[in-house]
Design a protein around this nucleic acid. Structure first.
Lengths: 247, 247
DNA sequence: GAAATAGTGTCTATAAGACAGTATAAA
DNA sequence: TTTATACTGTCTTATAGACACTATTTC
């Protein structure tokens, strides 16, 4: 046995402070032109009756990313790796009293996905539903967030807003095929402000492989038929498309 | 006692997997026109003789940020809150076998600071020194990184490079007062490419309150006296100053 | 025809890339 | 006088903002 192997055999890890590690998922979708986030009403203490981000404990033999992907599937049926599902790490939250039960460090994640269905009630939590992000972060008295989850949602929203500026992630929010107006409504919903549609069209079409013509057109509705597109393979928008509030 | 208080009194947290939580610091400085990172040679197993990021265990009653600030002070004498010290969370690393001793989740941080002194050897680690980042990430056989620290340094470097594009953080790398050429050399060292000096000057001076004239001029050296500046209060550069490789 | 929507074209302002050119100080 | 450095100016190009305008479809 090598020196290092002997060391590891004899190593006693019990002297270090034990933490629980969890993941919290900010799952966003755009429905009816509104940015929404999936929250779960807590059926148990602590924070019984408050709303919380979906998530859970990281198992001893999995990474936080794996735990996040697992929880995402359990909660929504979505698989990471599908083209219209995006998962990324947000930030880690570790203030000592953030969970009154025990010492918990939580790794936050952001998930974007196209038009997700209404969650079926009574799965494992007492209630799960899509909330408009505006209600969650505003002063809607119907909803109180558990733990430090309001802070986490604030960080997640800013991350998503910023990412639409310099990545093509907006396209993960729409079902294929989509029109440029569909994509424009995503920006409108996420940013809470509307780029001028004519300039928006010019920008999107000028970014190579942001969207590709699907060869189809819309039918029905008022006005001319809109050309439909599918998602391209480019991930970055260069130069960025800036929010008005960032200029 | 309230329902929630009773619940917390009776709560048994022992059923959840115990993790150790650490922080790892990527402490960057620019010395002699070269971007350098502080590494510590491991005197003990595991990875004895390899180089590792400074850091340590998060205590049960402190946040990961507090632990990072504490370790930074222990390692360098720097206090977070000083004007030329910047600390920010990078990312959390949690793959199951990343530390062979035990299950460790590590929160990575990035620290930027002006021209730091050579660390005094034989503090608590067997050896501590500034390594050129290029050597650390290149194939210099003199240096092997412990754990997944090479991956962490790669992420940290990309973070710092990106941040110089859209923030004024480059100024935390220079001692006050500084000339525009000093600031330009920071960009050159971090990016590994040089923006055209004339255009760089125009850009920096066009960003309101990026730098402020100190009213002084350099003395000595070849050529005309350079005007000196101090750091301004603006944190964002809008529009960003892009690397050539990002265009 | 009115209204909503899809899409085009153009004028202007801003900012960056490229680079020429002037001035200053030390060796 | 040569060399390195500090700094200014200008021409061109790329891009975004603003907005007018045409075309198509439903009611």
């Amino acid at each position: 046995m090598s020196d290092e192997q002997v060391f590891l055999e004899e190593y006693d890890s019990s002297e270090y402070p034990p933490f629980a590690v969890t993941c919290d998922l900010n799952i966003f979708t755009v429905r009816d032109g509104v940015l929404k986030i999936l929250l779960i009403e807590r059926g148990d203490n602590p924070f019984k009756g408050s709303w919380a981000l979906p998530g859970g404990f990281v198992n001893i033999n999995e990474s936080a990313e794996d735990a996040a992907a697992r929880e995402l599937f359990e909660e929504t049926g979505l698989h990471v790796g599908e083209l219209d599902v995006h998962l990324e790490q947000l930030k880690t939250y570790s203030t000592p009293k953030r969970d009154p039960r025990m010492r918990v460090v939580s790794v936050g994640y952001v998930v974007l996905s196209a038009n997700l269905p209404e969650p079926k009630a009574g799965d494992d939590a007492s209630d799960a539903r899509w909330w408009p992000v505006e209600d969650v972060l505003g002063d809607n008295p119907e909803i109180t967030l558990a733990f430090d989850h309001k802070l986490i949602v604030e960080d997640a929203l800013e991350r998503v807003r910023a990412k639409l500026e310099y990545t093509t992630l907006a396209a993960t929010f729409v079902d294929e095929p989509f029109s440029l107006s569909d994509l424009w409504r995503v920006y409108k919903a996420v940013w809470g402000e509307e780029p001028l549609l004519a300039n928006f069209r010019r920008k999107v079409l000028s970014v190579n492989d942001f969207v590709n013509p699907a060869g189809e057109y819309t039918s029905g509705g008022v006005g001319p038929r809109a050309k439909l597109y599918t998602r391209g393979n480019t991930t970055e928008i260069q130069p960025a498309m800036l929010r008005e509030s960032k200029q």
